[in-house]
Design a protein around this nucleic acid. Structure first.
Lengths: 181, 181
DNA sequence: TTAGCGATGTATCCACTGGATACATCAGCG
DNA sequence: CGCTGATGTATCCAGTGGATACATCGCTAA
């Protein structure tokens, strides 16, 4: 909307999402305060409310950007095993962001068109990246769900250290075997 | 420790965990404040700090109780499909509690002996409930991980409405097929 | 050219939160 | 029977998300 030297700040909405991503990555959770975020942007904390209805709306913006980045990481996977590996790598590299993405509720996803579109990009990448030629649609759909469940569940359990594995590297190897690759 | 008419309140620690469970179930998240909890117990909010170091310690207590209840729900499952079904039923019936259980970090689980023991009860139930006779230990271990990943991941994706299924009932049916049962 | 309007940002306030410090109460043991 | 340590209370604090009122200034229409 405001490409260059626009008004007071430029494009505060985008800058806020950028900075929020940095803060989230920094301590692997979305525990930052709006005030800390605003201070880093050199702006009164209330200025953010001109672009986001509330904290939740800002996080929805962060989630949308996260799904976009995830889709970028997934579309280049040449086959199912590398697809799964790329997904796991993304989630373990940016755990705070992954949490924000996955914590968004149904209403948020369907309410925010940008967020919905980004999620759909990821789903599209999954359908293509996990396609098994010759299988009917129902089977393909189920295979996407199966891999996604194993990936998402494995990530959560590994992060909670419930699997008793020695390292993330060992986990990355193990999950491929478990998925049947 | 304080069985009957003990001191001022009786057993505030246990009562606090009970009441926290109610609040968590009520709005499907652990968003309650210590003050609201204390008020319901008829006690100054600071009294809780005589039993829990901080909010996180209280939630660790809640998580321990959650794992105990989950283990109770799992040990009676006669075979692998009913085990999976029971796990999913528990998590979808008490989403707030399930989140609290799964959000506990490595340090919390290993630091609190009660929590650790409760987690081990669940793992023990899984190993028994999912046992496939005649398979070697490594295979059994991997099968436990596979089902747990599918269950935990499926639950998370279903709750975020990422799977595009019509209802929790449909999900419960679908996940059994996906697990290969 | 300029008036003023709407978008953006600021100043200040509020109720509420988790947590800290200091003190009061009282069960049970010597 | 008096002391002590466990338990609970009173009060304070800085920090939080959010609200209301106002200031700034680019853009557009006359």
């Amino acid at each position: 909307m405001a490409p260059r030297g626009a008004y007071h700040h430029g494009d505060l909405a985008a800058a806020a999402v950028d900075e929020a991503l940095r803060l989230i990555d920094a301590d692997a959770s979305a525990s930052f305060s709006l005030r800390a975020l605003a201070e880093r942007l050199g702006v009164a904390h209330r200025a953010l409310y001109n672009h986001f209805a509330d904290r939740e709306a800002l996080l929805a913006g962060v989630a949308a950007r996260g799904f976009d980045m995830l889709a970028d990481a997934l579309v280049i996977a040449p086959d199912a095993p590398s697809f799964l590996a790329a997904y796991v790598r993304f989630a373990l590299a940016r755990p705070g962001l992954y949490d924000v993405m996955m914590a968004r509720r149904h209403t948020a996803i369907n309410g925010d068109p940008g967020l919905r579109a980004a999620v759909d990009r990821v789903i599209g990448a999954a359908v293509k990246g996990l396609a098994t030629p010759g299988a009917d649609d129902e089977t393909q759909r189920r295979e996407v769900m199966r891999i996604w469940m194993i990936a998402h569940g494995g990530i959560g359990l590994q992060r909670a250290r419930m699997l008793r594995l020695r390292s993330d590297a060992e986990f990355a190897e193990e999950i491929l075997r478990i998925a049947g690759f």
